[in-house]
Design a binder for these strands. Structure first.
Lengths: 192, 192
DNA sequence: ACCAGAAAATGACCGCGGTCAATAAAAAAT
DNA sequence: ATTTTTTATTGACCGCGGTCATTTTCTGGT
């Protein structure tokens, strides 16, 4: 009862991923059509769904990859020492997350692991983001009444809030970084 | 250049709304099909889209109504004095927001006003939630180094974070209220 | 080399949201 | 009362994601 995976499978999958990236490079994530992808990859529609549960599953993979790349860049930044520096370090991540409305919505929708057994690519990125910030929190000058873990969860919550408000016309007066800075100052170094 | 609206219009619209509520009462929000609604309302499919931009627009209206009812209940609670009391006051709102995964996702997606000119029902609810909490913050014993407005924005951010984590298998150990309580204590009454 | 069984690919088909030119009904103008 | 104009309704049709029985291709055993 072996389930030998043929090398053909990997090749087809690679073709589909490559074709998807091509399509996205042209028109962005939102405009991607499965039909267009399979045509570019030279396979039938049914083949696509033999490789990915649904369109979202492909998106999770592609967006997760990009997000991981951004997180690596953030890690390279080194431990930030101030709030502006923290925001600066996370800038690539936040930048990509809000590069397209469609992307932001999809990331939020898949930010949680549906089941402990299978953590999706995006849920994994959220965990990675959180752990990275948590580690930073241990070596930075902030309030000490709460754990680095809690501090990191707060940073994530405020980052998401700031990104959400970017898409809200009622709060577009203040820009993303300024808003996040206000939040994080209040969260990390309260004065009363 | 008058745009007289016929009373027939209002009647059809009411029929559609009523039919929608019926359908939802049976199978929940996620399972609603436009086809089923128009059949129950006794009109053609095209009529539906003459009254609502798309399916989401109807959902915004229905969910917005429910959400407003929950907010009214929260207002009736009176100004909460402690964090557990605050969570208790907001309980109906949070309860409804997480009653269905589909509902939560839709609410989040439409929480921002797409344009200042037209604030959707759900964006309005978010504003109302925020203003209500802000007013509470003025009459409650918290940190005073930041404005009630900022405090309220933080409460909203943490509430959303807590709700999101409810759907994440990696963080399902802690329940919603307990998590939110930890967040709000740290946010409203920091100790260092 | 050949065959049996497993794995992969195919494309016709379906469900459902959304469109639009044609039609009917109501209101305004005569 | 009749015509004209505006407003509302209709349902055939389309786009696109997703399914599944059938066919093709691969692989391991003899």
């Amino acid at each position: 009862m072996q389930k030998t995976i043929q090398k053909r499978t990997l090749k087809t999958r690679a073709k589909l991923i490559a074709a998807s990236e091509e399509v996205i490079a042209k028109g962005g994530y939102e405009a991607l059509r499965v039909e267009e992808v399979v045509q570019a990859a030279g396979v039938a529609k049914g083949t696509f769904f033999a490789h990915f549960r649904d369109k979202d599953a492909l998106m999770e993979i592609l967006i997760g990859e990009k997000l991981n790349a951004c997180l690596s860049r953030a890690e390279d930044h080194g431990t930030p020492k101030t709030v502006p520096d923290l925001i600066d370090a996370l800038e690539p991540v936040h930048q990509f997350m809000t590069s397209e409305r469609y992307v932001f919505d999809l990331i939020i929708r898949y930010s949680g692991a549906a089941a402990v057994a299978e953590i999706g690519p995006i849920a994994y990125c959220f965990e990675r983001y959180f752990r990275m910030v948590e580690a930073w929190m241990e070596n930075v000058d902030t309030r000490t009444d709460i754990t680095p873990e809690l501090l990191a969860e707060g940073v994530q919550a405020f980052a998401i809030q700031s990104m959400s408000l970017k898409y809200c016309a009622l709060h577009s007066a203040q820009n993303f970084s300024d808003r996040l800075e206000v939040y994080l100052n209040a969260w990390l170094t309260p004065a009363a």
